[in-house]
């Protein structure tokens, strides 16, 4: 398995009376090049599962394996290296508001050692692709929700990741731009990029090779679409 969880649990305020079981005993795996879509109602744990798969959070119990390596045993440096191989599209965009759109896209490439000219070439190309060619120097806080979403997508893709994790990637996009993003994701997947998406959008679900449904933090397998 390329990316796999075993008995994964994430509890908030664990051990208290207010304990919240965001994920409880999740075992799921993704093969390289596969498209996995996680569905489920709000609060079912989709975002938490993606964050754990993206090495953005540590599980309360259980294991996450990336190419067979247990992320729970990785050092901070090793985890950062794993994250560099992934692209994460956050539901709330998570842009740095006072940086320009271009800077938001190029910043993750600096520690990767991508030369300055190449960083900005990629940023320009991706923004043009999403119809934001003129917004390279615009501050993120000055962009609309849809524009921020597209910048967030561009940031995730700029690092040429092996796996893209996208939390509700089309939720803030108009149908045309949303379709453009899906076309791009399909294109990436055709090139071998693994996709792990969470969405309610039937168009996104249509990309899935496999769909997992979460409910109350527990996983329920669904027949393939």
């Amino acid at each position: 398995m390329f990316l796999e969880t075993q008995s994964l649990c994430k509890f908030y305020r664990a051990g208290t009376r207010d304990e919240v079981r965001a994920l409880d005993d999740i075992s799921v795996g993704v093969e390289r090049g596969e498209v996995l879509v996680v569905v489920g109602p709000s609060g079912s744990g989709k975002t938490t599962l993606l964050a754990l798969l993206g090495a953005l959070e540590r599980p309360t119990r259980g294991h996450i394996f990336f190419e067979g390596r247990d992320l729970g045993e990785c050092s901070d440096v090793a985890l950062a290296r794993v994250r560099r191989r992934m692209g994460f599209i956050f539901q709330d965009f998570s842009l740095i508001p006072d940086l320009s759109a271009g800077e938001n896209i190029t910043y993750p490439l600096i520690p990767r050692g991508v030369p300055r000219a190449e960083r900005w070439r990629r940023a320009e190309e991706l923004l043009s692709r999403f119809g934001l060619g003129g917004k390279l120097t615009a501050r993120a806080r000055e962009l609309s929700g849809g524009e921020q979403q597209r910048v967030a997508v561009a940031r995730a893709l700029a690092g040429e990741p092996e796996v893209v994790l996208a939390d509700e990637p089309t939720s803030n996009l108009d149908p045309v731009t949303g379709q453009g993003l899906l076309d791009l994701l399909r294109e990436l997947n055709a090139g071998g990029t693994t996709l792990i998406l969470s969405s309610h959008d039937p168009a996104v679900i249509s990309l899935a090779g496999r769909v997992c449904e979460l409910e109350g933090g527990k996983l329920r397998a669904r027949p393939n679409q």
């Binding site: 993206g54 953005l56 901070d76 440096v77 950062a80 994250r83 560099r84 994460f88 956050f90 998570s94 842009l95 740095i96 508001p97 910043y107 993750p108 520690p111 990767r112 940031r155 690092g159």
Partner: peptide, 19 residues
């Protein structure tokens, strides 16, 4: 809070703690 979030974003996008 804003700076803390900024650090979180940088780390989420591949920055190491020492960076």
């Amino acid at each position: 809070a804003e700076r803390r979030r900024e650090v979180g974003i940088l780390k989420a996008t591949g920055w190491q703690t020492d960076e």
